[in-house]
């Protein structure tokens, strides 16, 4: 990691902290814009410009509009304090999770490391993308390599995503039922 990445991480952490702590929702939205700026640069720096583009569109564009629409239909709290009160047990839980992630950090490959699995596993004797194209039918029986990656090779991942989306849908329905339909 270069000095650039460290400076960027400091910036992102500051922005994330400020977003979490602001009491005034509008200020939090504005500062969240700064957070998404930092994330977009970080994704780009890690050679994922497609993710960065999505972050730009979602973080600065869609999220802002959605949140503005939301607070336009709700009321703004009186701003007697600048920051939220910190909920200590939550900080402990999140901190523990971050610590667990940190222990895994040592096993990650550096950016551009020639030994990284992206460039090929020794066991496979080829790169993953070539492997998927060649072996998908034999391994999974799926005709489409993209479907095979999503539903089979990354099946647990996709399952988790689907759970998250359904949970969000159910939550939205519950909120709407309480706020709108009754």
């Amino acid at each position: 990691m270069s000095a650039f990445a460290y400076a960027l991480v400091v910036f992102i952490l500051l922005a994330a902290l400020a977003t979490a702590l602001f009491r005034d929702v509008l200020s939090a939205i504005v500062v969240f814009g700064a957070y998404s700026l930092g994330m977009a640069i970080l994704y780009t720096f890690l050679l994922a410009p497609d993710v960065a583009m999505t972050e730009a569109a979602i973080g600065a564009g869609v999220t802002t509009i959605l949140l503005l629409l939301t607070i336009a239909r709700t009321s703004r709290p009186p701003t007697d304090r600048l920051f939220e009160r910190i909920h200590l047990p939550a900080v402990v839980a999140v901190g523990a999770f971050v610590l667990v992630l940190f222990t895994l950090l040592g096993d990650m490959y550096a950016v551009g490391d020639p030994n990284a699995p992206v460039w090929g596993w020794e066991a496979l004797e080829t790169t993953p993308s070539v492997y998927y194209v060649q072996e998908t039918y034999a391994d999974t029986g799926a005709q489409n390599a993209v479907s095979a990656v999503l539903a089979s090779y990354r099946g647990f991942d996709t399952f988790g995503e689907a759970v998250v989306v359904f949970a969000a849908g159910i939550a939205v329905l519950l909120v709407l039922k309480r706020e709108v339909f009754t």
């Binding site: 509008l26 504005v30 814009g33 700026l37 600065a60 802002t64 503005l68």
Partner: peptide, 9 residues
């Protein structure tokens, strides 16, 4: 997008 965000807010 940055411009849009500034004007929208």
């Amino acid at each position: 997008l940055n411009f849009l965000m500034a004007v929208a807010i």
